[in-house]
Design a protein around this nucleic acid. Structure first.
Length: 407
DNA sequence: TGTCCACTGGAAGGGAGGGCTT
DNA sequence: AAGCCCTCCCTTCCAGTGGACA
């Protein structure tokens, strides 16, 4: 019998590709088609080297337009250029990960030597004072990059921005320049005027990449990885055009390229062709959805399972009331506490924003106002993932709504 | 034209769980 | 050990609402 790994060893495809080149964390030594934007930001931040004070910046652009990568690139270059002249440090905070003001101050304060701040437990006054002390002990220019700042502000308001501006004004030996990154062009509308004027000192927009520009970026990465001869032009063009249809998202394009290479490699083929790209696209979409379901809280899984069972038993669309009943049956069947309709209503909105369901508010006139709910994922695949969760093991053999009602 | 349904979604607050301080 | 602070998940309460129907 053939060795199951034989196919990986056949063919002339390079075996030791550096996949790191295709990771979002990889920052190249030049960023094609972003020279202008980088130039504007660098000119502003470059004032630090001349002893001046840069303006706070807001960077706008859809996802995958290179905002974050550009800021990492600029931060790296600036820290390098300032070495042995002035203290410069870039602190990156993804506001979707650090989604409360405590953890933003904690991250900022802990980026410098000094008293270590625990990730929870301190009063705000102490948190603020320690952050301030740590920054002043260090003494220098902090570039505070707040990635996805719009999500944070929409969730928590802009008080924390005011607090950071206040902190900056109270620092004696350090300074903070805020760089806010957002993909919402209307972001400034959410800001209070006292914050808006100080944050909005400079505005830079990163436009989406065109298909040709994405092609150049991909070509660049392929060359850095040293596999230029193993990726067909057709494959690169296809990825570029798919990505440009999706808001010119270069990050997705690079990820698709990496997946295509992996697929070509594991099939024992010698070149990445269009067919590999199509497989990569399908696999990526599927993986993303299933991973979303897998990481859902138990109650949300119960809710989703209820919707799936309803859908399997008949109509395409269901009202909140019907979905709640289905959920109640699932929760009872799985021995889970049954949450209130109010909570379920919020959870439906969450599933909607994750793209797993579509829920839109409709009025049925005399019969009330409700959300019409429709499922967007493959029932069988979703069920398989939900049943991986042992909370639902009891339900594995009661697959229909009808059977569930009997339990 | 007014009523009324079945909700929606905001606000407030309780309790658990994590951690720190005294 | 007791007390405090913070976030997260959830409940309770309730005013608001689009449109079919009488």
């Amino acid at each position: 019998m053939d060795n199951i790994f034989k196919k990986y060893l056949e063919g002339t495809f390079p075996k030791n590709i550096d996949y790191g080149v295709f990771e979002p964390s990889f920052i190249p030594h030049k960023m094609p088609h972003r020279e202008k934007e980088i130039g504007v930001i660098a000119e502003n931040l470059g004032r630090i080297l001349l002893g001046g004070r840069p303006k706070n910046i807001l960077v706008f652009g859809k996802s995958g337009t290179g905002k974050t990568a550009a800021m990492k690139y600029i931060g790296r270059e600036l820290e390098e250029a300032s070495r042995e002249r002035v203290n410069v440090k870039t602190v990156f905070i993804n506001c979707q990960v650090k989604d409360n003001s405590y953890s933003i101050f904690e991250t900022l304060g802990n980026a410098f030597n000094g008293e270590r701040i625990p990730f929870t437990g301190w009063s705000f006054d102490r948190l603020y004072a320690t952050t301030r002390k740590n920054l002043d002990q260090w003494g220098g220019n902090v570039i505070l990059v707040l990635d996805e700042i719009d999500r944070f502000v929409k969730k928590n308001g802009d008080d924390f921005l005011y607090q950071i501006l206040l902190l900056d004004s109270e620092l004696e030996k350090s300074r903070i320049t805020i760089v806010g990154i957002t993909n919402d062009l209307k972001f400034s509308e959410y800001l209070d005027s006292r914050v808006k004027s100080r944050l909005n000192e400079e505005k830079i927009v990163f436009p989406p990449y065109s298909s040709d520009q994405i092609y150049d970026i991909l070509m660049d990465r392929v060359n850095i990885a040293g596999i230029g001869g193993f990726v067909s032009e057709g494959a690169l063009r296809l990825i570029s055009s798919l990505a440009s249809q999706e808001n010119g998202d270069a990050r997705k394009a690079i990820e698709m390229l990496r997946t295509s290479i992996q697929i070509a490699f594991s099939s024992g083929d010698n070149r990445v062709e269009e067919a590999h790209v199509f497989s990569a696209k399908t696999r990526m979409e599927y993986d993303a959805v299933m991973e979303t379901i897998r990481t859902l809280p138990v109650q949300a899984k119960a809710l989703l399972l209820g919707i799936i069972l309803l859908r399997e038993s008949g109509n395409v669309q269901y009202t909140t009331g019907e979905v709640f009943e289905a959920y109640r049956n699932v929760a009872n069947g799985a021995n889970l506490p049954v949450l209130t309709p109010r909570r379920i209503s919020d959870m439906l909105s969450d599933l909607d924003s994750l793209g797993l369901i579509t829920a839109h508010v409709t009025s049925l006139g005399r019969y009330g106002r409700t959300k019409m709910i429709e499922i967007n994922v493959s029932f069988n695949d979703a069920k398989k993932v939900i049943f991986e969760d042992e909370n639902f093991s009891r339900l594995k053999n009661t697959p229909t709504m009808k059977q569930l009602r009997l339990t």
